[in-house]
Amino acid sequence: MSAPLVPQGAAGGSADSSTSFAASESGTSTTDGTRDIVATGSSTVEVEDVPAAITQISDAATSAGGYVESSQVGGGYGVVPLDATASQPAVSSGWITVRVPAEALTSVMDGLSAVGDVTATSVNRSDVTEQTVDLRARVAAGEASVARLTELMAQAGSVSDLIAAESALSERQAQLDSDRAILTSIESQVAMSSLSVQLNMRSQTVAADPAGFGDGLVAGWNGLIATLNGVVIGLGFLLPWIAVAGIVVLIVWGVRRIVRNRRGSREA
Protein backbone atom coordinates (compact mmCIF):
# COMPACT_ATOMS: atom_id res chain seq x y z
CA MET A 1 0.00 0.00 0.00
CA SER A 2 1.42 3.33 -1.03
CA ALA A 3 1.93 6.17 1.45
CA PRO A 4 -0.57 9.06 1.40
CA LEU A 5 0.36 11.80 -1.01
CA VAL A 6 -1.17 14.61 1.07
CA PRO A 7 1.55 16.10 3.28
CA GLN A 8 0.79 16.31 6.99
CA GLY A 9 -0.80 19.65 7.85
CA ALA A 10 -1.42 20.67 4.24
CA ALA A 11 -5.01 21.39 5.18
CA GLY A 12 -4.47 21.83 8.87
CA GLY A 13 -2.49 23.87 11.36
CA SER A 14 1.11 23.46 10.15
CA ALA A 15 0.55 25.85 7.28
CA ASP A 16 -0.73 28.45 9.75
CA SER A 17 2.37 27.92 11.85
CA SER A 18 4.60 28.52 8.87
CA THR A 19 2.57 31.61 8.04
CA SER A 20 2.99 33.02 11.55
CA PHE A 21 6.69 32.22 11.42
CA ALA A 22 7.03 34.03 8.09
CA ALA A 23 5.20 37.04 9.49
CA SER A 24 7.41 37.15 12.57
CA GLU A 25 10.51 36.86 10.42
CA SER A 26 9.27 39.76 8.29
CA GLY A 27 8.71 41.96 11.34
CA THR A 28 6.09 44.71 11.22
CA SER A 29 7.27 46.65 8.20
CA THR A 30 6.56 46.18 4.52
CA THR A 31 9.14 45.05 2.02
CA ASP A 32 10.12 48.64 1.21
CA GLY A 33 10.28 49.66 4.89
CA THR A 34 7.14 51.84 4.83
CA ARG A 35 4.10 51.51 7.08
CA ASP A 36 0.60 50.65 5.90
CA ILE A 37 -1.71 53.38 7.21
CA VAL A 38 -5.47 53.58 6.72
CA ALA A 39 -6.52 57.25 6.95
CA THR A 40 -10.14 58.33 7.32
CA GLY A 41 -11.18 61.99 7.35
CA SER A 42 -14.43 63.70 8.31
CA SER A 43 -15.54 67.34 8.18
CA THR A 44 -18.61 69.46 8.79
CA VAL A 45 -19.09 72.47 6.49
CA GLU A 46 -21.68 75.23 6.43
CA VAL A 47 -22.51 76.33 2.89
CA GLU A 48 -24.91 78.59 1.01
CA ASP A 49 -26.00 75.93 -1.51
CA VAL A 50 -25.81 72.24 -0.52
CA PRO A 51 -26.15 70.67 -4.03
CA ALA A 52 -23.55 73.08 -5.43
CA ALA A 53 -21.17 72.23 -2.57
CA ILE A 54 -21.56 68.50 -3.27
CA THR A 55 -20.68 69.14 -6.91
CA GLN A 56 -17.57 71.12 -5.87
CA ILE A 57 -16.36 68.36 -3.54
CA SER A 58 -17.04 65.72 -6.19
CA ASP A 59 -15.02 67.67 -8.77
CA ALA A 60 -12.15 68.15 -6.29
CA ALA A 61 -12.03 64.41 -5.52
CA THR A 62 -12.07 63.53 -9.21
CA SER A 63 -9.31 66.02 -9.97
CA ALA A 64 -7.18 64.46 -7.21
CA GLY A 65 -7.55 61.02 -8.79
CA GLY A 66 -10.41 59.80 -6.59
CA TYR A 67 -14.11 59.20 -6.94
CA VAL A 68 -17.45 59.68 -5.17
CA GLU A 69 -18.39 56.67 -3.05
CA SER A 70 -21.83 57.91 -1.99
CA SER A 71 -23.78 61.12 -1.51
CA GLN A 72 -27.17 62.32 -0.37
CA VAL A 73 -29.03 65.61 -0.38
CA GLY A 74 -31.63 66.01 2.36
CA GLY A 75 -34.17 68.80 2.83
CA GLY A 76 -37.08 69.61 5.06
CA TYR A 77 -39.24 67.22 3.05
CA GLY A 78 -36.91 64.21 2.99
CA VAL A 79 -34.31 63.19 0.42
CA VAL A 80 -34.27 64.92 -2.95
CA PRO A 81 -32.10 64.14 -6.00
CA LEU A 82 -28.99 66.13 -6.82
CA ASP A 83 -30.64 67.55 -9.94
CA ALA A 84 -33.35 69.25 -7.87
CA THR A 85 -35.37 71.82 -9.77
CA ALA A 86 -36.32 75.28 -8.57
CA SER A 87 -39.88 74.10 -7.82
CA GLN A 88 -38.65 71.76 -5.10
CA PRO A 89 -38.12 72.88 -1.46
CA ALA A 90 -34.82 74.39 -0.39
CA VAL A 91 -32.19 71.88 0.70
CA SER A 92 -30.98 72.35 4.26
CA SER A 93 -28.42 69.55 4.59
CA GLY A 94 -26.60 66.73 2.84
CA TRP A 95 -23.48 64.59 2.94
CA ILE A 96 -20.92 63.12 0.58
CA THR A 97 -18.26 60.42 0.97
CA VAL A 98 -15.33 60.37 -1.44
CA ARG A 99 -12.24 58.19 -1.84
CA VAL A 100 -9.01 59.96 -2.74
CA PRO A 101 -5.36 58.85 -2.94
CA ALA A 102 -3.86 58.77 0.55
CA GLU A 103 -1.28 61.42 -0.31
CA ALA A 104 -4.04 63.78 -1.54
CA LEU A 105 -6.29 63.55 1.54
CA THR A 106 -4.77 66.56 3.32
CA SER A 107 -4.96 68.83 0.27
CA VAL A 108 -8.57 67.84 -0.46
CA MET A 109 -9.56 68.56 3.15
CA ASP A 110 -7.75 71.91 3.03
CA GLY A 111 -9.75 72.74 -0.10
CA LEU A 112 -13.03 72.45 1.82
CA SER A 113 -12.49 76.00 3.09
CA ALA A 114 -13.23 77.18 -0.46
CA VAL A 115 -16.59 75.37 -0.36
CA GLY A 116 -17.87 76.93 2.87
CA ASP A 117 -17.16 77.47 6.56
CA VAL A 118 -15.45 74.40 8.05
CA THR A 119 -16.87 74.05 11.57
CA ALA A 120 -15.34 70.67 12.48
CA THR A 121 -12.69 68.35 11.03
CA SER A 122 -10.84 65.23 12.10
CA VAL A 123 -8.52 62.58 10.66
CA ASN A 124 -8.23 59.06 12.03
CA ARG A 125 -5.14 57.02 11.08
CA SER A 126 -4.82 53.29 11.76
CA ASP A 127 -1.58 51.35 11.35
CA VAL A 128 -2.42 48.02 9.66
CA THR A 129 1.16 47.04 8.84
CA GLU A 130 1.14 43.91 11.03
CA GLN A 131 -2.14 42.77 9.49
CA THR A 132 -0.98 43.25 5.90
CA VAL A 133 2.37 41.58 6.56
CA ASP A 134 0.61 38.60 8.10
CA LEU A 135 -1.89 38.40 5.23
CA ARG A 136 0.84 38.59 2.60
CA ALA A 137 2.67 35.74 4.35
CA ARG A 138 -0.54 33.72 4.53
CA VAL A 139 -1.20 34.32 0.83
CA ALA A 140 2.33 33.26 -0.11
CA ALA A 141 2.06 30.13 2.03
CA GLY A 142 -1.37 29.38 0.60
CA GLU A 143 -0.16 29.74 -2.97
CA ALA A 144 2.76 27.37 -2.27
CA SER A 145 0.40 24.88 -0.61
CA VAL A 146 -2.04 25.00 -3.53
CA ALA A 147 0.80 24.48 -6.03
CA ARG A 148 2.13 21.53 -4.01
CA LEU A 149 -1.29 19.90 -3.72
CA THR A 150 -1.85 20.34 -7.46
CA GLU A 151 1.41 18.45 -8.12
CA LEU A 152 0.41 15.70 -5.67
CA MET A 153 -2.93 15.24 -7.43
CA ALA A 154 -1.07 14.55 -10.67
CA GLN A 155 1.02 11.91 -8.85
CA ALA A 156 -1.90 10.25 -7.06
CA GLY A 157 -1.54 6.46 -7.23
CA SER A 158 -5.02 5.59 -6.02
CA VAL A 159 -8.52 6.96 -5.90
CA SER A 160 -8.30 7.52 -2.13
CA ASP A 161 -5.12 9.57 -2.54
CA LEU A 162 -6.76 11.62 -5.29
CA ILE A 163 -9.86 12.29 -3.17
CA ALA A 164 -7.72 13.30 -0.18
CA ALA A 165 -5.63 15.64 -2.33
CA GLU A 166 -8.74 17.21 -3.90
CA SER A 167 -10.33 17.77 -0.49
CA ALA A 168 -7.16 19.38 0.88
CA LEU A 169 -6.77 21.48 -2.28
CA SER A 170 -10.37 22.70 -2.10
CA GLU A 171 -9.97 23.76 1.53
CA ARG A 172 -6.62 25.43 0.94
CA GLN A 173 -7.91 27.23 -2.19
CA ALA A 174 -10.94 28.60 -0.28
CA GLN A 175 -8.66 29.92 2.49
CA LEU A 176 -6.31 31.43 -0.09
CA ASP A 177 -9.18 33.21 -1.87
CA SER A 178 -10.43 34.60 1.46
CA ASP A 179 -6.98 35.87 2.44
CA ARG A 180 -6.51 37.47 -0.98
CA ALA A 181 -9.88 39.26 -0.74
CA ILE A 182 -9.12 40.64 2.73
CA LEU A 183 -5.63 41.74 1.68
CA THR A 184 -7.00 43.45 -1.44
CA SER A 185 -9.60 45.30 0.64
CA ILE A 186 -7.05 46.54 3.17
CA GLU A 187 -4.57 47.56 0.47
CA SER A 188 -7.38 49.49 -1.22
CA GLN A 189 -8.11 51.34 2.04
CA VAL A 190 -4.41 52.12 2.44
CA ALA A 191 -4.07 53.43 -1.10
CA MET A 192 -7.38 55.34 -1.21
CA SER A 193 -8.37 57.29 1.89
CA SER A 194 -12.03 57.94 2.75
CA LEU A 195 -13.39 61.44 3.40
CA SER A 196 -16.93 62.06 4.68
CA VAL A 197 -18.31 65.61 4.61
CA GLN A 198 -21.49 66.70 6.37
CA LEU A 199 -22.99 69.77 4.70
CA ASN A 200 -25.38 72.17 6.46
CA MET A 201 -26.98 75.29 5.06
CA ARG A 202 -25.48 78.43 6.57
CA SER A 203 -27.92 80.23 8.87
CA GLN A 204 -28.99 83.66 7.66
CA THR A 205 -27.54 86.55 9.68
CA VAL A 206 -30.07 89.24 10.63
CA ALA A 207 -28.61 92.73 10.16
CA ALA A 208 -29.10 94.96 13.23
CA ASP A 209 -30.74 98.37 12.66
CA PRO A 210 -30.70 100.25 15.99
CA ALA A 211 -33.05 103.23 16.33
CA GLY A 212 -31.51 106.72 16.63
CA PHE A 213 -32.58 109.91 18.44
CA GLY A 214 -34.80 111.00 15.56
CA ASP A 215 -36.59 107.65 15.55
CA GLY A 216 -37.10 107.94 19.32
CA LEU A 217 -38.49 111.49 18.98
CA VAL A 218 -40.94 110.40 16.28
CA ALA A 219 -42.00 107.41 18.35
CA GLY A 220 -42.52 109.67 21.42
CA TRP A 221 -44.60 112.20 19.45
CA ASN A 222 -46.73 109.44 17.99
CA GLY A 223 -47.23 108.06 21.48
CA LEU A 224 -48.29 111.49 22.81
CA ILE A 225 -50.81 111.96 19.99
CA ALA A 226 -52.17 108.51 20.61
CA THR A 227 -52.51 109.26 24.34
CA LEU A 228 -54.29 112.60 23.72
CA ASN A 229 -56.62 110.91 21.29
CA GLY A 230 -57.39 108.35 23.95
CA VAL A 231 -58.09 111.05 26.53
CA VAL A 232 -60.41 112.94 24.16
CA ILE A 233 -62.26 109.78 23.30
CA GLY A 234 -62.58 108.96 26.99
CA LEU A 235 -63.97 112.40 27.81
CA GLY A 236 -66.43 112.17 24.95
CA PHE A 237 -67.57 108.82 26.30
CA LEU A 238 -67.92 110.13 29.91
CA LEU A 239 -69.70 113.47 29.21
CA PRO A 240 -73.21 112.01 28.77
CA TRP A 241 -72.84 110.08 32.00
CA ILE A 242 -71.57 113.16 33.82
CA ALA A 243 -74.58 115.19 32.63
CA VAL A 244 -77.02 112.51 33.75
CA ALA A 245 -75.25 112.24 37.12
CA GLY A 246 -75.45 116.06 37.53
CA ILE A 247 -79.20 116.08 36.89
CA VAL A 248 -79.72 113.28 39.42
CA VAL A 249 -77.66 115.17 41.99
CA LEU A 250 -79.74 118.38 41.42
CA ILE A 251 -83.01 116.48 41.82
CA VAL A 252 -81.84 114.89 45.05
CA TRP A 253 -80.61 118.24 46.37
CA GLY A 254 -83.93 119.94 45.49
CA VAL A 255 -85.97 117.21 47.17
CA ARG A 256 -83.91 117.40 50.32
CA ARG A 257 -84.23 121.20 50.36
CA ILE A 258 -88.03 121.03 50.06
CA VAL A 259 -88.21 118.46 52.83
CA ARG A 260 -86.07 120.65 55.08
CA ASN A 261 -88.23 123.74 54.47
CA ARG A 262 -91.42 121.90 55.30
CA ARG A 263 -89.89 120.47 58.45
CA GLY A 264 -88.78 123.99 59.51
CA SER A 265 -92.28 125.38 58.92
CA ARG A 266 -93.90 122.72 61.09
CA GLU A 267 -91.49 123.34 63.94
CA ALA A 268 -92.22 127.09 63.78
Rank of each mutant, 00 (worst) to 15 (best):
A3S: 09
P4M: 12
L5P: 00
P7Y: 10
G12W: 04
G12P: 01
D16P: 01
S17C: 08
S17I: 08
F21T: 15
F21C: 11
A23E: 06
A23H: 03
S26T: 11
S29C: 05
D32S: 03
G33M: 09
G33Y: 02
T34E: 10
R35K: 14
R35I: 04
D36Y: 05
I37W: 10
V38T: 07
S42H: 14
S43A: 15
V47N: 04
E48N: 11
P51K: 05
A53Y: 01
A53P: 00
I54F: 01
S58N: 11
S63E: 15
A64D: 12
G66N: 07
V68H: 04
E69G: 04
Q72Y: 02
G74N: 06
G74A: 05
G74W: 01
G75L: 00
G76E: 02
V80S: 00
P81G: 07
L82H: 09
L82I: 04
D83A: 08
A84K: 08
T85I: 04
T85A: 09
V91W: 09
S92M: 06
W95H: 08
W95D: 01
T97F: 06
R99F: 05
A104E: 15
A104P: 10
S107K: 13
S107R: 14
V108Q: 08
V108R: 11
M109P: 12
A114D: 15
V115W: 08
G116I: 06
T119I: 10
A120P: 01
V123E: 02
S126N: 07
D127A: 12
E130Q: 13
T132I: 14
D134G: 06
D134K: 13
L135W: 05
R136F: 01
E143D: 12
A144G: 10
L149V: 09
L149H: 02
E151L: 10
E151R: 13
M153D: 04
Q155K: 13
Q155W: 09
Q155R: 15
A156D: 08
G157M: 03
G157S: 10
S160F: 00
L162Y: 05
S167C: 01
L169A: 05
Q173F: 09
Q173A: 14
A181L: 08
E187V: 07
S193W: 07
S193Q: 11
L195S: 12
V197D: 03
V197K: 02
L199R: 08
L199Y: 04
M201S: 04
S203L: 04
Q204N: 10
T205L: 10
A208E: 06
D209T: 14
F213R: 15
V218L: 14
A226T: 05
T227S: 05
V232Q: 04
I233S: 09
G236Q: 00
L238D: 00
P240E: 02
A243I: 00
A243W: 00
A245C: 03
L250K: 12
W253L: 02
R256I: 11
R257L: 12
V259F: 03
N261S: 09
R263Q: 15
G264C: 06
G264Q: 15
R266L: 13
E267T: 10
A268C: 00
